[in-house]
Design a protein around this nucleic acid. Structure first.
Lengths: 248, 248
DNA sequence: TCAAAAGTGTTTACCGTACACCCATGG
DNA sequence: CCATGGGTGTACGGTAAACACTTTTGA
């Protein structure tokens, strides 16, 4: 995402610098990300924004997250900075987005800092910005061609997420407070994109001690009612300290 | 590192953006990094530079590396972008570096992209830049207080290096073409900052197949002559593909 | 009563770790 | 001949992986 204040005197933003956010959620056993559809088009992109002169880059990312999801205190992690010369083509943008922003308001090139966020799907109220008509969850497997280099940014975000999963029990950020073991397992399956054996999975998670089984089951399903669990936050942080929970 | 072209029209660099490099080398069993001493001072910093309008950020990092070490085709990896508001204090810089660059040439704030590089110590010819008198290797354990937020950048670089070591057999980039098993082991010990059992280490490395024992030993030492090894590049890339070599 | 998904234990193979002595070399 | 550091094997324990049937529930 870029901005339209190019060349202004007394700029209140850092020129040629932007940030893009890959916001992950988990619903119905599927990993999803938040995408924006640009006004009166079928063109999609990741949510992004600029960095103000008087805010840190992390604060800027939190601001964008807040604007798109309504959430504060989100798990947010910088994963890479994209600095190639030809991250977008001004001609193409003029054709596709010219009616929203004139091409004159785009820099010849910009550097973008990539963040990924993990949020509880159910808590999010997707909210478009002034350039876009729609902000919605899209299945990771059904992401269309995106504007700019956003497909490449997404790819790198997924790689970082997978690697992170080897160190952190990510469910803490992506699941509601109470969840079932199969839900947690399907989350791992979705992130790693492979099948996991339920017996081995349960053994590993329980042994780590990061979850506590509640005296409660999830009812209303046309099969055996699964137990509910919650994370043991202290134990969870402890496990993080000693180098994490490995899933490869 | 920042630059002095602030506010110029037709800027040929990206304003408020810089990059800093942590250049790791290995010698005498110790990890070292390249530091610069500013002209007529005892103030030290990491090598850094700006990003030109017509070069990618990766190219800019390679340029800086080339200028400081004389090396091309270096192992170079972006590890984090530093975007806090108060990464440096202009007053302090005026006091310390005012005779080299006037404070007016510093932005109020800048964002810096951090890279770390792994180089063969013996191949490097350290070379100061126009602001500095000296460029030299310093033991990681003896790094002084650095200018800007460079101590924090270094700390993060080491963390990234350690994590990277869990995925990549880093010796390929830090050691000469022929090396002994104890040299490789001491490299791991230096990076991880802990003792390793030589029998287990050898077993693990040999089993992975990433090194090949040569029909040669290293002579001239007052003890049993150690075998020389070289990396098996193909096998090494294969190991990377399947998720790497774990050292924790 | 049926379909759908949850819950659960055992065995095996491999890998990581702990551990100590002899050997070759140059001085 | 001595000091230094290099080279090597085995035994144990723990963890990961493979593997299938029974149970519960709502429809």
């Amino acid at each position: 995402m870029e901005d339209d204040s190019k060349g202004a005197v007394g700029l209140d933003l850092i020129p040629q610098l932007s940030l893009d956010c890959v916001i992950f959620g988990f619903h119905d056993g599927l990993l999803k990300i938040l995408l924006l559809r640009w006004k009166e088009t079928e063109e999609w992109s990741l949510p992004g924004g600029i960095v103000l002169q008087r805010e840190s880059v992390d604060d800027a990312a939190n601001r964008v997250l807040m604007e798109r999801t309504g959430l504060t205190e989100i798990f947010l992690k910088q994963f890479h900075t994209f600095g190639d010369l030809h991250r977008y083509d001004k001609k193409e943008l003029q054709d596709k987005l010219g009616h929203v922003i004139s091409t004159e308001h785009w820099y010849d090139r910009a550097v973008s800092i990539g963040y990924f966020a993990l949020v509880d799907y159910a808590m999010v109220f997707p909210n478009p910005d002034k350039y876009t008509d729609e902000c919605k969850w899209v299945d990771l497997k059904e992401v269309p061609k995106l504007l700019f280099d956003h497909n490449a940014i997404l790819e790198k975000a997924i790689q970082s997420l997978r690697r992170e999963l080897s160190f952190q029990p990510l469910g803490y950020n992506l699941l509601p407070e109470k969840f079932t073991m199969p839900e947690l397992m399907r989350l791992y399956e979705a992130v790693l994109d492979k099948k996991i054996d339920p017996r081995n999975f349960q053994k590993k998670i329980l042994k780590s001690g990061i979850v506590i089984r509640l005296e409660e089951v999830k009812r209303g399903l046309a099969h055996k009612s699964p137990f509910l669990y919650r994370f043991d936050k202290e134990r969870y942080e402890e496990v993080l300290e000693d180098g994490g929970l490995f899933f490869v």
